[in-house]
Design a protein around this nucleic acid. Structure first.
Lengths: 355, 355
DNA sequence: ACGCAATCTGTTCACGTAAACATTTTTGGC
DNA sequence: GCCAAAAATGTTTACGTGAACAGATTGCGT
């Protein structure tokens, strides 16, 4: 395989890469470049015969429109920026999938920036990078370290957010954190538990805060004792550490964990200490990750409809792009139903009959 | 808040959106636009004093370079396309995170196209959409339904692939599927199991095929019986269904599942049927997802270094973009170590002492 | 067959940027 | 202090596209 001749790009003076242009197609088809453009965009009618000739030429040359030129001319990129805190988390990846799907239906692609490292400068750097650039709108799924003020977005940039801390500052879509949390806690109370303990998410997380607040309120309005919540960070590891502590205590019979991973870690620790779930301790999670149904015991949890949320986020962007709707105060809420499985039961040794 | 004046875009004739241009900055700073360009790109030296003046003007106007124009002029987008089969799978999302991180270090952004729906027309549509367009390279993490031929990529497009079916067609980076699988099976044999059963991934998946082959070879070269593998689809649900069947059989003492999710489903079914893990049945997974250590019992599994793989994929793209290296036959392999936890033990009731 | 309208197609131009080339200013060796 | 070399800056131009406008062709009623 001689590798000598290979790599001869285009003409001598031509820029690297770029394939055949609209002009090449026009020449081959014997029409003006504007007509090629019309065929390409479908913006104006072209006589059927002419269109065929142009399409033939396109195929023959392997023409594809140059998106950079198109974006420059039209002032938009048909692309949406996406900021997520951690792609790896079930909630975020499911939402991302849905966003991509919905965006594609609208003819938009998605540019993804993960903001893993939790320094706030990273976040604003990410936004800087995205905001002025090759995107027409910005979806923020979660940005743990950023505040609305820190974003410094250009005022014309459409934004949609699923992180509750941004509600009021930007249009938002999110699961009904409060309703879901309330249902989880109430479920445990209804089973006969005297109170419910809570493993919270990180202090700076909006959703974590909402879940903790709803947990507290539900207990309070039922007249139950409110114990200090345990502080977690969403990870199974944290759940495990906290669980090792809980396993030593006799007074904990029911735990509402702020997400499923922490619930899994908790159950792991309880198993290891010889405490039974749900006989000794009932556990409820949040998210309904795919594995929740296959943990042992299968996990009772609050389901977030991430697919719906992702689609709604894109819709919010599209509404801003289309009409110049003012949506700043918008807040869409998606129901978060409680899914009862086998990690919850009446307290103590009385095995509860499944209903 | 009157909403009447809002939305007055730029000048009467100006295109929508676009902010201040290089020319506006030049005028304000009293230099030529080319000098502003030099400051902006850092391509050529500019006298310190002049640079300051230009930077001031940029700040004052809130200037940000127009990426479309830049891409048009330079012929590249500083963006990498990414095709994944399912963002939700641990392996893929971890790889995606790493790709994004590595790309950002190179000053590239990542455009993500998920190809969830398993019709092959979707895949080629996705590639069509991406390949000719706003990207300079393409990373394919997994494309279950596409074949190398079906991709129809422009020959100049740099590609990097982590799906083994593409090896030989495109430069590839991947975990050492064979070594990892071999270690898993050998581990079980070393514990004293007569043979090892296998829950395979989907038939059309390259990695699934490799793992099954390595499993078979390891058994054969040890002179052990090879049972027909169970056919799964990566999902915990499939693992559960197969597990319900396995739980009925007395002859299965050790199972190597092609991924952790299926292993989780399997364990779930075994628990439910009253079979003990690892006392009655040993289980090994593949991937080492975050939850693997917190399943009950904690799962022995083969770790894939997704982070490394993601970085390597980007490096492969960069090498093609930089020098015009010929990498078609390249195949980088990342070690896949066995992580022994507590889901494996010697067969039958003899409880194994932890080492 | 004529002329007007409607439809289709061609020409010109600007989007914002950076490469290529041209010019000016500074630097340094003697 | 003078001239050549180097450094800094300016001018011109093209990247590929599609809007605006202009011109050509067709259809249709009479």
């Amino acid at each position: 395989m001689s590798s000598e001749v290979r790599g001869a790009r285009r003409g001598v003076k031509g820029h690297p890469k770029s394939g055949p242009s609209i002009g090449d197609v026009a020449r081959l088809a014997g029409v003006s470049s504007q007509t090629v453009s019309r065929v390409s965009t479908g913006s104006e009618p072209v006589k059927a015969e002419t269109r065929e000739r142009v399409l033939d030429a396109m195929r023959q040359l392997g023409y594809a429109p140059n998106l950079a030129a198109r974006a420059l001319r039209q002032g938009n990129f048909r692309s949406i920026g996406l900021i997520a805190h951690q792609v790896i988390r079930t909630g975020e990846s499911k939402t991302i999938e849905a966003v991509i799907e919905a965006a594609r239906l609208e003819g938009y692609s998605v540019s993804l920036v993960d903001v893993e490292t939790p320094s706030s400068s990273d976040v604003s750097e990410a936004v800087q990078h995205l905001s002025h650039q090759a995107i027409d709108g910005l979806i923020i799924i979660r940005a743990e370290t950023a505040t609305p003020a820190a974003l410094a977005l250009p005022p014309t940039m459409p934004v949609a957010v699923s992180d509750s801390r941004f509600i009021g500052h930007h249009p938002a879509v999110g699961a009904d954190q409060i309703g879901g949390s309330r249902a989880a806690v109430q479920h445990l109370l209804d089973l006969g538990h005297a109170t419910v303990h809570h493993i919270a998410g990180p202090a700076d997380s909006g959703p974590a805060d909402l879940r903790a607040t709803a947990w507290r309120q539900t207990l309070t309005s039922a007249g139950r004792e409110v114990q200090e919540p345990f502080g977690g960070d969403w990870s199974a590891e944290a759940g495990y550490t906290i669980g090792s502590e809980i396993a030593q205590r006799d007074d904990v019979t029911a735990v509402f964990a702020a997400n499923d991973e922490m619930a899994a870690g908790l159950i792991h620790a309880l198993h290891e200490a010889g405490r039974r779930v749900p006989d000794d301790v009932s556990v409820v999670g949040f998210d309904d990750i795919d594995l929740a149904a296959h943990l042992w015991p299968p996990l009772t949890t609050v389901r977030q409809e991430f697919h719906q949320i992702g689609h709604d986020l894109v819709e919010v962007i599209m509404r801003q792009l289309g009409g110049r709707e003012q949506l700043t105060g918008y807040h869409g809420t998606v129901p978060a139903p409680l899914i009862v499985r086998q990690s919850t039961a009446a307290p103590r040794k009385r095995r509860r009959t499944r209903r």
